[in-house]
Amino acid sequence: MARPLLTLAALATAAVAGLEVRAARAHTRDAGGAFDAVELHSTDGRRLLIRAPRTQTAESEQSADLVALRALTLGIRSRLPFAVPEFLGQAPIGPTRAVVTEFIPGAVRSADELTANPRWPPTSAARSPPSTPCPRASSAMPVCRDAPPPRCASPRWQ
């Protein structure tokens, strides 16, 4: 890991207002990963991930990820059959920035693994249920404000 684990944990507290970290562990993918990453456990029970790019290519990838994450509204997220991390903050580190998101546990799978295993993707019972349809929904208002809140991987919404 190019950057010390505790440095990234401390940086996360600067990126997310009020964050108090009680535990941290390396989450970098092998020694040759494109990012330095640390999984954080906060005192309020949240699990977060801070990632800092190691290369210019990784920084470009991170910028594209940020644009995509910020474009996903709660309504869009509620319709997805999988969890998407929520952007929580960012802080400068050298010439780049570190980004803090929710941590979503899981395993990395290659396209070959997904197509070779008949159990992937998971059955619909393992996925989050879709949001409640609104009887008054139109193309201008696809999400019903009277519907119960959607289920979400984030404990903040449960």
Score class of each variant (00 low, 15 high):
F103C: 04
I50Q: 03
Q56C: 00
T101V: 10
A116T: 11
L8W: 11
S124C: 03
T28A: 14
H41S: 15
P4R: 15
P129S: 05
V16T: 11
F35G: 00
V16W: 10
S42F: 05
L8S: 11
S60G: 06
S128W: 10
A137L: 07
G33P: 01
V108T: 12
A91S: 08
D65L: 01
V38P: 04
L5P: 07
A153Q: 05
T115D: 00
R119K: 11
H41V: 15
I104H: 07
T7D: 14
R29N: 01
P129V: 02
A31T: 08
V16F: 12
R51F: 00
S63D: 12
L49G: 03
R109E: 08
T28H: 06
W157S: 08
V67D: 09
S78C: 07
E20P: 02
P121K: 13
S124T: 10
E59I: 00
D65W: 00
E102I: 02
L48Q: 02
Q62N: 05
A26P: 09
P85V: 03
L72S: 04
R3K: 14
M1A: 09
E61G: 02
R47M: 10
L88P: 01
E86C: 12
A31E: 13
L8D: 06
S63M: 12
T123E: 10
S154H: 06
G45P: 10
A31Y: 05
A68W: 00
E61L: 02
G75C: 09
A107M: 12
D44L: 11
P122W: 10
N117R: 12
P4G: 13
F103W: 15
A137V: 09
A17N: 11
A31I: 03
G18S: 08
V38M: 07
V100L: 12
A125F: 09
A24V: 15
A153D: 07
P121D: 05
P150H: 08
T57V: 07
M141E: 13
L69W: 06
A64E: 06
F103Y: 14
T132H: 13
C144R: 13
Q90N: 07
T73L: 11
A24G: 15
I50S: 06
A10Q: 13
C134H: 08
P133D: 06
P118L: 13
S154Y: 05
